[in-house]
Design a protein around this nucleic acid. Structure first.
Lengths: 179, 179
DNA sequence: GCCATATGAATGAATG
DNA sequence: CATTCATTCATATGGC
Protein backbone atom coordinates (compact mmCIF):
# COMPACT_ATOMS: atom_id res chain seq x y z
CA UNK A 1 0.00 0.00 0.00
CA UNK A 2 1.65 2.73 -0.93
CA UNK A 3 -1.05 4.88 -0.45
CA UNK A 4 -0.99 6.56 2.64
CA UNK A 5 -4.16 7.79 1.87
CA UNK A 6 -5.90 9.93 4.07
CA UNK A 7 -4.02 9.52 7.03
CA UNK A 8 -3.78 6.98 9.37
CA UNK A 9 -3.32 7.49 12.77
CA UNK A 10 -1.03 4.98 13.06
CA UNK A 11 1.79 3.36 13.71
CA UNK A 12 4.30 3.47 11.29
CA UNK A 13 6.52 6.05 11.43
CA UNK A 14 4.11 8.48 11.19
CA UNK A 15 6.60 10.98 12.03
CA UNK A 16 4.39 13.22 13.52
CA UNK A 17 5.73 13.23 16.76
CA UNK A 18 8.71 11.57 16.83
CA UNK A 19 11.20 12.68 15.09
CA UNK A 20 13.26 10.53 13.48
CA UNK A 21 13.22 7.08 14.15
CA UNK A 22 10.39 4.95 14.18
CA UNK A 23 8.28 7.33 15.56
CA UNK A 24 5.29 6.66 17.42
CA UNK A 25 5.52 3.11 18.18
CA UNK A 26 8.86 3.44 19.61
CA UNK A 27 9.85 0.34 17.94
CA UNK A 28 13.38 -0.33 18.49
CA UNK A 29 15.91 0.31 15.96
CA UNK A 30 15.06 -2.76 14.15
CA UNK A 31 14.18 -1.86 10.72
CA UNK A 32 13.63 1.28 8.88
CA UNK A 33 10.27 2.69 9.29
CA UNK A 34 9.72 5.31 6.68
CA UNK A 35 7.86 8.42 7.52
CA UNK A 36 4.97 9.37 5.39
CA UNK A 37 6.95 12.09 3.75
CA UNK A 38 9.67 9.71 2.84
CA UNK A 39 7.20 7.36 1.34
CA UNK A 40 5.60 10.12 -0.52
CA UNK A 41 8.79 11.24 -2.10
CA UNK A 42 9.84 7.76 -2.99
CA UNK A 43 6.51 7.07 -4.49
CA UNK A 44 6.64 10.18 -6.52
CA UNK A 45 9.99 9.24 -7.84
CA UNK A 46 8.75 5.85 -8.70
CA UNK A 47 5.77 7.23 -10.37
CA UNK A 48 7.75 9.54 -12.39
CA UNK A 49 9.48 6.60 -13.80
CA UNK A 50 12.43 5.84 -11.67
CA UNK A 51 12.71 2.19 -11.05
CA UNK A 52 16.30 1.31 -10.54
CA UNK A 53 18.26 4.22 -9.24
CA UNK A 54 21.97 4.14 -9.57
CA UNK A 55 24.17 4.15 -6.59
CA UNK A 56 24.57 7.81 -6.97
CA UNK A 57 20.99 8.53 -7.10
CA UNK A 58 20.38 6.34 -4.17
CA UNK A 59 22.82 8.34 -2.19
CA UNK A 60 21.26 11.55 -3.11
CA UNK A 61 17.78 10.46 -2.49
CA UNK A 62 18.74 9.03 0.79
CA UNK A 63 20.47 12.09 1.79
CA UNK A 64 17.55 14.25 0.98
CA UNK A 65 15.18 12.00 2.72
CA UNK A 66 17.23 12.01 5.80
CA UNK A 67 15.72 15.35 6.41
CA UNK A 68 12.57 13.63 7.36
CA UNK A 69 14.05 11.04 9.50
CA UNK A 70 16.57 8.38 9.84
CA UNK A 71 17.33 6.57 6.70
CA UNK A 72 20.20 4.78 5.06
CA UNK A 73 20.89 4.31 1.44
CA UNK A 74 20.20 0.70 1.55
CA UNK A 75 16.70 1.49 2.61
CA UNK A 76 16.23 3.42 -0.54
CA UNK A 77 17.76 0.66 -2.51
CA UNK A 78 15.47 -1.92 -1.04
CA UNK A 79 12.50 0.27 -1.35
CA UNK A 80 12.90 0.47 -5.05
CA UNK A 81 13.64 -3.16 -5.41
CA UNK A 82 10.61 -4.12 -3.50
CA UNK A 83 8.34 -1.66 -5.03
CA UNK A 84 9.29 -2.67 -8.47
CA UNK A 85 9.07 -6.34 -7.78
CA UNK A 86 5.75 -6.06 -6.12
CA UNK A 87 4.27 -4.04 -8.79
CA UNK A 88 5.29 -6.66 -11.23
CA UNK A 89 4.09 -9.47 -9.15
CA UNK A 90 0.82 -7.88 -8.54
CA UNK A 91 0.33 -7.27 -12.11
CA UNK A 92 1.16 -10.76 -12.98
CA UNK A 93 -1.29 -12.07 -10.54
CA UNK A 94 -4.11 -9.88 -11.40
CA UNK A 95 -3.71 -10.76 -14.96
CA UNK A 96 -4.13 -14.37 -14.48
CA UNK A 97 -6.54 -14.23 -11.75
CA UNK A 98 -9.23 -12.00 -12.57
CA UNK A 99 -10.04 -13.52 -15.79
CA UNK A 100 -12.98 -15.65 -15.52
CA UNK A 101 -14.84 -14.61 -12.66
CA UNK A 102 -17.98 -13.60 -14.11
CA UNK A 103 -18.95 -16.35 -16.32
CA UNK A 104 -22.40 -15.64 -16.96
CA UNK A 105 -24.12 -12.51 -17.76
CA UNK A 106 -23.64 -8.98 -17.09
CA UNK A 107 -22.11 -7.60 -20.10
CA UNK A 108 -21.54 -4.42 -18.50
CA UNK A 109 -19.37 -5.86 -15.98
CA UNK A 110 -17.21 -7.29 -18.60
CA UNK A 111 -16.64 -3.92 -19.92
CA UNK A 112 -15.72 -2.63 -16.65
CA UNK A 113 -13.52 -5.53 -16.22
CA UNK A 114 -11.66 -4.84 -19.35
CA UNK A 115 -11.20 -1.32 -18.39
CA UNK A 116 -9.67 -2.32 -15.19
CA UNK A 117 -7.49 -4.80 -16.75
CA UNK A 118 -6.34 -2.26 -19.06
CA UNK A 119 -5.44 0.04 -16.43
CA UNK A 120 -3.52 -2.51 -14.72
CA UNK A 121 -1.67 -3.51 -17.71
CA UNK A 122 -0.85 -0.36 -19.36
CA UNK A 123 1.04 1.83 -17.02
CA UNK A 124 4.32 0.82 -18.21
CA UNK A 125 5.77 4.05 -19.07
CA UNK A 126 8.96 3.60 -17.37
CA UNK A 127 11.10 6.30 -18.39
CA UNK A 128 13.93 4.69 -16.81
CA UNK A 129 16.81 6.84 -17.29
CA UNK A 130 16.99 9.46 -15.04
CA UNK A 131 17.02 12.95 -14.76
CA UNK A 132 13.88 12.71 -13.12
CA UNK A 133 12.55 14.70 -10.56
CA UNK A 134 9.03 14.66 -10.35
CA UNK A 135 8.11 18.14 -10.28
CA UNK A 136 4.89 17.31 -8.95
CA UNK A 137 2.85 18.75 -11.48
CA UNK A 138 2.20 17.28 -14.58
CA UNK A 139 1.11 13.93 -14.56
CA UNK A 140 1.40 12.88 -18.03
CA UNK A 141 -1.50 12.49 -20.19
CA UNK A 142 -4.70 12.22 -18.58
CA UNK A 143 -4.72 8.62 -18.85
CA UNK A 144 -3.98 6.89 -15.80
CA UNK A 145 -2.39 8.74 -13.14
CA UNK A 146 -2.69 6.16 -10.72
CA UNK A 147 -5.75 4.94 -9.65
CA UNK A 148 -5.25 1.45 -9.15
CA UNK A 149 -2.72 0.13 -7.16
CA UNK A 150 -2.08 -3.05 -5.62
CA UNK A 151 -3.61 -6.05 -6.76
CA UNK A 152 -6.19 -5.58 -4.36
CA UNK A 153 -8.80 -4.18 -6.46
CA UNK A 154 -12.23 -4.17 -6.06
CA UNK A 155 -13.34 -7.07 -7.78
CA UNK A 156 -16.25 -6.94 -5.75
CA UNK A 157 -18.06 -9.34 -7.74
CA UNK A 158 -20.68 -11.09 -5.96
CA UNK A 159 -20.20 -14.64 -5.89
CA UNK A 160 -22.01 -16.12 -8.62
CA UNK A 161 -20.28 -19.26 -8.37
CA UNK A 162 -22.08 -22.35 -8.55
CA UNK A 163 -25.12 -21.74 -6.82
CA UNK A 164 -27.32 -24.35 -8.10
CA UNK A 165 -28.05 -22.85 -11.37
CA UNK A 166 -26.11 -23.63 -14.33
CA UNK A 167 -22.52 -23.42 -13.85
CA UNK A 168 -20.17 -25.22 -15.70
CA UNK A 169 -18.48 -26.92 -13.06
CA UNK A 170 -14.87 -26.47 -13.49
CA UNK A 171 -13.45 -29.77 -13.10
CA UNK A 172 -13.50 -29.41 -9.58
CA UNK A 173 -12.00 -32.29 -8.07
CA UNK A 174 -10.43 -31.00 -5.18
CA UNK A 175 -8.29 -33.84 -5.17
CA UNK A 176 -5.26 -31.74 -5.30
CA UNK A 177 -4.19 -33.62 -8.28
CA UNK A 178 -4.72 -30.64 -10.34
CA UNK A 179 -1.43 -29.24 -9.50
CA UNK B 1 -4.89 4.69 -1.64
CA UNK B 2 -7.00 6.29 -3.80
CA UNK B 3 -9.69 4.05 -3.41
CA UNK B 4 -11.60 3.40 -6.30
CA UNK B 5 -14.37 2.18 -4.38
CA UNK B 6 -14.89 5.38 -2.75
CA UNK B 7 -15.23 4.14 0.65
CA UNK B 8 -13.20 2.05 2.78
CA UNK B 9 -11.50 4.46 4.81
CA UNK B 10 -8.45 2.71 5.09
CA UNK B 11 -5.44 3.19 6.53
CA UNK B 12 -2.25 1.73 5.91
CA UNK B 13 -1.80 -1.79 5.59
CA UNK B 14 -5.30 -2.57 5.36
CA UNK B 15 -5.94 -2.57 1.75
CA UNK B 16 -9.41 -2.61 1.39
CA UNK B 17 -10.60 -2.97 -1.76
CA UNK B 18 -13.94 -3.64 -1.72
CA UNK B 19 -13.93 -7.11 -2.06
CA UNK B 20 -16.92 -8.93 -2.58
CA UNK B 21 -17.39 -11.13 0.10
CA UNK B 22 -17.20 -14.64 0.10
CA UNK B 23 -19.63 -17.22 0.00
CA UNK B 24 -19.48 -18.96 3.20
CA UNK B 25 -19.94 -16.51 5.88
CA UNK B 26 -21.22 -13.68 3.96
CA UNK B 27 -18.90 -11.35 5.64
CA UNK B 28 -18.76 -7.99 4.18
CA UNK B 29 -16.08 -6.84 2.07
CA UNK B 30 -12.68 -5.97 3.12
CA UNK B 31 -10.58 -8.90 3.18
CA UNK B 32 -10.80 -12.37 1.86
CA UNK B 33 -12.60 -14.67 4.09
CA UNK B 34 -12.00 -18.21 3.02
CA UNK B 35 -14.79 -20.69 3.04
CA UNK B 36 -14.34 -23.83 4.99
CA UNK B 37 -13.81 -25.81 1.85
CA UNK B 38 -11.12 -23.50 0.74
CA UNK B 39 -9.39 -23.76 4.02
CA UNK B 40 -9.69 -27.45 3.95
CA UNK B 41 -8.06 -27.77 0.61
CA UNK B 42 -5.33 -25.37 1.49
CA UNK B 43 -4.67 -27.15 4.68
CA UNK B 44 -4.52 -30.45 2.95
CA UNK B 45 -2.03 -29.12 0.53
CA UNK B 46 0.00 -27.75 3.31
CA UNK B 47 -0.12 -30.90 5.22
CA UNK B 48 0.90 -32.88 2.31
CA UNK B 49 4.02 -30.88 2.25
CA UNK B 50 3.45 -27.94 0.05
CA UNK B 51 4.88 -24.89 1.65
CA UNK B 52 5.83 -22.47 -0.98
CA UNK B 53 3.85 -22.94 -4.11
CA UNK B 54 5.26 -21.48 -7.23
CA UNK B 55 3.44 -18.82 -9.04
CA UNK B 56 2.02 -21.41 -11.31
CA UNK B 57 0.77 -23.53 -8.57
CA UNK B 58 -0.72 -20.59 -6.85
CA UNK B 59 -2.58 -19.83 -9.95
CA UNK B 60 -3.95 -23.26 -10.26
CA UNK B 61 -4.90 -23.59 -6.69
CA UNK B 62 -6.59 -20.29 -6.75
CA UNK B 63 -8.45 -21.16 -9.80
CA UNK B 64 -9.68 -24.39 -8.35
CA UNK B 65 -10.67 -22.78 -5.16
CA UNK B 66 -12.63 -20.16 -6.90
CA UNK B 67 -15.22 -22.77 -7.29
CA UNK B 68 -16.05 -22.38 -3.68
CA UNK B 69 -16.13 -18.71 -3.62
CA UNK B 70 -14.31 -15.60 -4.44
CA UNK B 71 -10.62 -15.80 -4.22
CA UNK B 72 -7.61 -14.26 -5.83
CA UNK B 73 -4.22 -15.74 -6.20
CA UNK B 74 -2.73 -13.34 -3.80
CA UNK B 75 -4.94 -14.82 -1.17
CA UNK B 76 -3.43 -18.18 -1.80
CA UNK B 77 -0.03 -16.68 -1.82
CA UNK B 78 -0.56 -14.98 1.51
CA UNK B 79 -2.19 -17.99 2.96
CA UNK B 80 0.86 -20.09 2.43
CA UNK B 81 3.21 -17.40 3.53
CA UNK B 82 1.34 -16.89 6.71
CA UNK B 83 0.76 -20.46 7.43
CA UNK B 84 4.36 -21.32 6.99
CA UNK B 85 5.57 -18.37 8.94
CA UNK B 86 3.26 -19.08 11.78
CA UNK B 87 4.22 -22.61 11.97
CA UNK B 88 7.80 -21.58 12.19
CA UNK B 89 7.00 -18.96 14.71
CA UNK B 90 5.13 -21.36 16.83
CA UNK B 91 7.93 -23.76 16.77
CA UNK B 92 10.38 -21.12 17.67
CA UNK B 93 8.23 -20.00 20.46
CA UNK B 94 8.00 -23.41 21.86
CA UNK B 95 11.67 -23.72 21.88
CA UNK B 96 12.08 -20.61 23.81
CA UNK B 97 9.18 -20.93 26.06
CA UNK B 98 9.83 -24.40 27.06
CA UNK B 99 13.49 -24.14 27.35
CA UNK B 100 14.80 -27.41 28.24
CA UNK B 101 13.53 -29.84 30.53
CA UNK B 102 10.78 -31.79 29.18
CA UNK B 103 11.99 -32.93 25.94
CA UNK B 104 11.19 -36.25 27.05
CA UNK B 105 7.67 -35.60 26.53
CA UNK B 106 5.76 -35.90 29.57
CA UNK B 107 2.20 -36.57 29.56
CA UNK B 108 -0.71 -34.43 29.68
CA UNK B 109 -0.32 -30.81 30.20
CA UNK B 110 1.41 -30.52 27.01
CA UNK B 111 -0.90 -32.67 25.17
CA UNK B 112 -2.43 -30.04 23.14
CA UNK B 113 0.88 -28.64 22.54
CA UNK B 114 2.34 -31.78 21.38
CA UNK B 115 -0.50 -32.33 19.14
CA UNK B 116 0.14 -29.08 17.50
CA UNK B 117 3.76 -29.58 17.40
CA UNK B 118 3.24 -32.85 15.93
CA UNK B 119 1.19 -31.52 13.28
CA UNK B 120 3.69 -28.98 12.62
CA UNK B 121 6.54 -31.25 12.60
CA UNK B 122 5.29 -34.19 10.83
CA UNK B 123 4.53 -32.96 7.42
CA UNK B 124 7.89 -33.66 6.24
CA UNK B 125 6.49 -36.19 4.07
CA UNK B 126 6.09 -33.98 1.25
CA UNK B 127 4.47 -36.06 -1.15
CA UNK B 128 3.77 -33.81 -3.86
CA UNK B 129 2.18 -34.79 -6.94
CA UNK B 130 3.97 -31.92 -8.00
CA UNK B 131 7.24 -31.58 -9.30
CA UNK B 132 9.27 -28.98 -7.80
CA UNK B 133 9.07 -26.70 -5.03
CA UNK B 134 11.81 -26.70 -2.62
CA UNK B 135 11.74 -28.92 0.25
CA UNK B 136 12.33 -26.82 3.15
CA UNK B 137 15.82 -25.88 3.20
CA UNK B 138 17.63 -24.64 6.11
CA UNK B 139 18.38 -21.25 6.93
CA UNK B 140 21.94 -20.88 7.38
CA UNK B 141 23.00 -17.66 8.73
CA UNK B 142 26.34 -16.42 8.20
CA UNK B 143 27.27 -15.96 4.65
CA UNK B 144 27.00 -12.35 4.10
CA UNK B 145 26.89 -10.91 0.78
CA UNK B 146 29.27 -8.20 0.15
CA UNK B 147 27.10 -6.88 -2.46
CA UNK B 148 24.68 -5.45 -0.17
CA UNK B 149 27.33 -4.06 1.95
CA UNK B 150 27.83 -1.72 -0.78
CA UNK B 151 25.62 0.48 1.04
CA UNK B 152 27.75 0.33 3.87
CA UNK B 153 26.23 2.07 6.43
CA UNK B 154 25.54 5.46 6.86
CA UNK B 155 24.28 3.94 9.81
CA UNK B 156 22.39 4.59 12.70
CA UNK B 157 23.07 8.02 13.55
CA UNK B 158 20.36 8.93 15.75
CA UNK B 159 18.17 11.42 14.42
CA UNK B 160 19.63 14.67 14.77
CA UNK B 161 17.21 15.96 12.44
CA UNK B 162 15.03 18.61 13.32
CA UNK B 163 12.98 17.09 15.80
CA UNK B 164 11.35 19.48 17.93
CA UNK B 165 11.03 22.05 15.39
CA UNK B 166 8.26 21.78 13.22
CA UNK B 167 8.74 20.19 10.12
CA UNK B 168 5.53 19.54 8.81
CA UNK B 169 5.86 21.44 5.79
CA UNK B 170 6.95 19.12 3.37
CA UNK B 171 7.46 22.00 1.46
CA UNK B 172 9.43 21.99 -1.39
CA UNK B 173 12.77 21.13 -1.25
CA UNK B 174 11.48 18.07 -2.47
CA UNK B 175 13.01 19.47 -5.31
CA UNK B 176 14.34 16.23 -6.31
CA UNK B 177 16.07 17.90 -9.01
CA UNK B 178 19.15 17.20 -7.17
CA UNK B 179 19.45 13.94 -8.81
C1' DG C 1 -18.74 -3.67 25.07
C1' DC C 2 -14.09 -5.19 25.75
C1' DC C 3 -10.28 -8.16 25.38
C1' DA C 4 -7.76 -12.28 23.48
C1' DT C 5 -6.66 -14.69 19.72
C1' DA C 6 -6.56 -16.14 14.80
C1' DT C 7 -5.50 -14.85 10.49
C1' DG C 8 -5.40 -11.81 6.16
C1' DA C 9 -2.37 -8.22 4.28
C1' DA C 10 1.63 -5.46 3.70
C1' DT C 11 6.33 -4.52 3.50
C1' DG C 12 11.34 -4.11 5.05
C1' DA C 13 15.22 -7.00 4.40
C1' DA C 14 17.68 -10.53 2.36
C1' DT C 15 19.36 -14.26 -0.60
C1' DG C 16 20.26 -16.76 -4.99
C1' DC D 1 15.16 -9.80 -10.82
C1' DA D 2 12.44 -13.44 -8.41
C1' DT D 3 11.57 -15.43 -4.02
C1' DT D 4 11.57 -15.96 0.59
C1' DC D 5 11.63 -14.71 5.57
C1' DA D 6 10.39 -11.90 9.51
C1' DT D 7 7.54 -8.53 11.51
C1' DT D 8 4.01 -5.90 12.04
C1' DC D 9 -0.57 -3.92 11.17
C1' DA D 10 -5.51 -4.66 10.78
C1' DT D 11 -9.62 -7.03 11.07
C1' DA D 12 -12.66 -10.92 12.14
C1' DT D 13 -14.29 -13.68 16.00
C1' DG D 14 -15.45 -15.78 20.16
C1' DG D 15 -15.64 -15.55 25.14
C1' DC D 16 -16.80 -13.07 29.02
Amino acid sequence: MEEVAGFCIKQRGGYGGGGGNNGGTGTKCGRWNPTTEQVKVLTDLFRSGLRTPSTDQIQKISSQLSFYGKIESKNVFYWFQNHKARERQKRRRVLVDEPNEFHHQDKLSSTKYLAELNQVTEPERVLETLQLFPLNSFREPGAESEKRRLFANDNCKENTYNIGTEMEHPTLDLRLSFL
